[in-house]
């Protein structure tokens, strides 16, 4: 089997899909909190994706992806079982320090639900009491509930419309857990920056250590370009080699969110270009078929 071959694919919703990729060495090396950089094709861009799971026996790593930009949408169409990625490098970043905390809340929202799973499992294996809090827009988007329940002592689902679990954002879940357990040692939150900011603000009054996983724009992922620099307190860090996990109470989330908008215009252009190209290819295929039919 060639490297980087896709062995399993699952569609969680119109937007979210799972890819399990063959890479035995990486499956052996990967630890919770690390990420990979993927290139779909030779013309592709390098996109960082957090490792959602790894199976050392099968020799695979799992990625859960949301089709939001050009590359992730193209991957949604083209990455089928049996196809291969052009490039896959990792595991990158410093593994999450699975501390000796006795009681932790693991929070995942949106694209952060999948990558919080190995952390929850890591804490469980380290003997902690794990409370899982995950957020989705509605009931239909919920995935991996069984997986989470298997490694969490308590599990809280939050949905925007209340169609599953409690109604509200993950911060509501966090507050509910803190209310019930006054002895929480640590909170780990992964998700969109605005959600992680919310989590950090929710725990700040309680002075509970809160770790977040940052996802800025990257090129190489090895500390070479500095595109992923983030403000942590008074210092500047590179998320790719100094992180991606940082103390959420020190992260300058507003700076991160501004920097994430850096290529919005170009992302739009790339998407339009791709859709136009795709249209052209489709048209050509149709023309060809018609021509073939005519001949007959």
């Amino acid at each position: 089997m060639s490297n980087f071959e896709i062995v399993t694919r699952e569609n969680f919703s119109d937007l979210t899909y799972l890819l399990e990729v063959h890479h035995p060495l990486m499956a052996k090396a990967a630890k919770p909190g690390q990420f990979v950089i993927v290139m779909l094709s030779e013309h592709g861009e390098r996109i960082p994706l957090t490792i959602a799971d790894f199976d050392r026996e099968k020799g695979t790593i799992t990625l859960v992806i949301q089709a939001i930009g050009k590359t992730t949408r193209q991957m949604q169409q083209e990455c089928q079982v049996g196809t291969s990625l052009y490039a896959l490098v990792g595991p990158m970043g410093i593994p999450s320090p699975i501390s000796h905390a006795k009681k932790v809340i693991c929070v995942g929202g949106g694209l952060g639900v999948a990558p919080i799973f190995p952390q929850a499992r890591g804490f469980k294996e380290a003997g902690a009491y794990v409370i899982g809090v995950v957020g989705f827009r509605n009931k239909d988007l919920v995935f991996w509930e069984d997986k989470f329940r298997a490694v969490c002592d308590e599990f809280i689902i939050c949905t925007d419309d209340g169609s599953a679990g409690i109604k509200g954002m993950v911060t509501a879940g966090i507050l509910q857990a803190i209310d019930k357990h006054p002895d929480i040692d640590e909170v780990v939150a992964i998700g969109p920056p605005i959600m992680m900011k919310g989590c950090a603000e929710a725990t700040r009054p309680f002075k509970i250590k809160t770790m977040v996983s940052l996802n800025p724009v990257m090129v190489d992922g090895t500390g070479m370009c500095g595109g992923c620099r983030v403000k942590i307190g008074d210092t500047v860090k590179f998320a790719c080699v100094d992180g991606p996990d940082f103390d959420g109470h020190l992260v300058d989330f507003d700076d991160l969110m501004t920097r994430l908008k850096r290529y919005t215009k170009e992302e739009r252009m790339a998407l339009d270009h791709w859709e136009k190209e795709k249209g052209c290819r489709l048209q050509k295929a149709v023309d060809k078929t018609i021509a073939a039919t005519d001949l007959r």
Binding site: H43, V219, E266, A270
Partner: peptide, 28 residues
Amino acid sequence: LNGVLSANELLTRCNLMRAKEFPSFDTP
């Protein structure tokens, strides 16, 4: 600020990722 970058980033985008041919190549 957006618009401040390292020479490494500028050059890597342009040379290795061939961003000068964007959008034929995906890297902006």
